[in-house]
Design a protein around this nucleic acid. Sequence first.
DNA 1: GTCTATAACAAGATAGAC
DNA 2: GTCTATCTTGTTATAGAC
Lengths: 186, 186
Amino acid sequence: MGRTAGRSPEQTRAAILDAAGRLVRERGVSASLDDVARRAGVSKGGLLYHFANKHDLHLALAADWLESFRTAVLAAIPPDDDAPGRLTRGYVRVSVDGALDATASRDALVVIAHLSSVDAVVDLARADARRWNEDLRADGLPEDVLALVVAAADGASAQPAWGGEPTPDELTRLREQLLALTILGD
Amino acid sequence: MGRTAGRSPEQTRAAILDAAGRLVRERGVSASLDDVARRAGVSKGGLLYHFANKHDLHLALAADWLESFRTAVLAAIPPDDDAPGRLTRGYVRVSVDGALDATASRDALVVIAHLSSVDAVVDLARADARRWNEDLRADGLPEDVLALVVAAADGASAQPAWGGEPTPDELTRLREQLLALTILGD
DNA sequence: GTCTATAACAAGATAGAC
DNA sequence: GTCTATCTTGTTATAGAC
């Protein structure tokens, strides 16, 4: 048995996806399989057992990011929030705080932008965007408020992509501002 | 003389940057020099005369995009607009319409996101973002309005990056909404 | 289930012809 | 100023040992 004796296949897979995510964010899709494998603590051969080829790895990575973003949004809705706009509020919290945190499902946009060079990922992202569109529309907010708030949330999480360095303070204020917009209704 | 007899060096350079921009947007920085050269109608050797190496090409591309975005924003300010928020309004017009148009300085964020795998580009983008930050702060709008409007504009131009397909109608409404926010003052 | 070794290929960069 | 080789390196992916 190799040097990863104590790790289950699922854990190995997760470690590979994690390493790939960080490397893609740093270097884009041209990050080599060898580098990904090394950072995940497996050999290239080991990596290619779990993901048949680079294309598969990228696709799985995109699916993983999109799914974990969705999960994070749902988790960011307080159980007692039953008012219209609850999903939007979760979306805002995760997007804006994501520009702040240095972990978890942050920077989704940067990674997706990089992965968008892979055709199959574009299709996946498009389908996911449509689903968000539907879900958010059904969230009970006036159309204009929704469009404004979602665009601003997206913008906040996009800023690190092109050099923006919003301070925690600015992000906090933006988040509260956006949340307030969803509560007054109009 | 080669097959590009009628083209000046400046035009060749511009053609290369244009081709590189489109290819980077489609495939990321892993688009090969050979492909860029072919699309620009020059040979790889010809390309490497104008840009010493791939790194230089990417840096020049980023500088070009950032500059043409700035130019577009300034051009989008009507000469008779003298009220506070004029720069912000230009920023909004270019960012939101950029998500709509299929030409010019659109999709800046996608390209910058891709290029962000190049360290020198990150520095450049950061310096540019700081400059925008200063300029926009000096634009005379209340801080909260500014943060909200700029984030939303960024978000609009970011959406195509990860699968979002805003309709022209939605974008137009968002743009008018944002412009209105900058006029009422608070 | 993971590793090493290697085949097969693609890409960046250089040198020199035109 | 641009093009055609060519060198060299790095990468994907396979085959097979452990």
